[in-house]
Design a protein around this nucleic acid. Structure first.
Length: 236
DNA sequence: GACCAGGCACATC
DNA sequence: GATGTGCATGGT
């Protein structure tokens, strides 16, 4: 497998990957402390939030969630299941893509009621593999949303890859800029122990890091941990 | 006013 | 399989 890297980015060797990924986690945790995700109280709220945050700033998602709570729609899946698509779209408008997201949320509740009688507790008894298959089969739930739901709503040890993860890793020459989701996820999951609590914090910390913007370069996402050289400065 | 944000599905080649 | 496009709001 041939890869080309910019001169300043050296590919890291396989042997070092687990050390580097563990070190990145340690540095992020030391710097930011625990993030205590997901920012939502119930399974239902986490699932809805995972759909609403697709390609959307969390601040906008919060407004939509507030509207849903005020309308009493997050207290039970049944209320969400029975509201019509247009009314739901109106409530989630601040989160953008409100028509598609309304359909996606309704898709999920339709599935939840047809397969599990509307019970997330029943759904939670299924194996990770079954849940994964079912979720990815729903229109509107792609790999990141599926894994966010698995990790944060169902507490399964699955690593969530997002745009920040990809950007940070590609900047350090660990993956190509056009790497696939599964490839990046595999990097984390094959080199780290499958620890749900750690995966939870790790993803949240990467998002926290990703939100930091460098004043000197809009391309730079890692300065906060030492001029963007989180990995290059590694003492190894 | 441009650019970005915790994606995904679908059409087309 | 790869690439392009639509979906939309709100903050910087």
């Amino acid at each position: 497998m041939k890869q080309s890297f910019p001169t300043k980015m050296r590919p890291v060797s396989n042997a070092n990957e687990s050390i580097i990924l563990a070190e990145l986690y340690r540095r992020l945790y030391r710097h930011y402390g625990p993030q205590r995700w997901w920012p939502g109280d119930t399974r239902l709220e986490i699932i809805v939030g995972a759909i609403l945050t697709q390609n959307t700033a969390w601040a906008n998602v919060e407004k939509a969630i507030r509207n849903l709570k005020a309308a009493g729609l997050l207290s039970s899946a049944r209320r969400l299941h029975h509201i019509n698509k247009r009314s739901l779209a109106r409530l989630i408008k601040p989160a953008g893509y409100y028509n598609v997201k309304s359909s996606r949320i309704k898709n999920f509740t339709r599935f939840l009621f047809s397969k599990y009688g509307g019970s997330l507790e029943r759904m939670a008894r299924r194996s990770t593999e079954e849940l994964s298959r079912e979720l990815i089969g729903l229109n509107g739930i792609g790999p990141e949303t599926r894994d966010s739901i698995l990790l944060y709503a169902f507490k399964r040890p699955v690593f969530v890859v997002d745009a920040y993860t990809k950007r940070i890793l590609s900047r350090h020459g660990m993956v190509k800029t056009d790497a696939f989701y599964d490839e990046i996820q595999g990097l984390f999951m094959s080199h780290l122990s499958a620890n749900e609590k750690m995966f939870n914090e790790y993803h949240a910390l990467i998002v926290r890091l990703g939100k930091e913007r460098c004043r000197t370069s809009p391309q730079c996402y890692g300065c906060v941990l030492g001029a963007g050289k989180v990995l290059e400065n590694r003492p190894m």
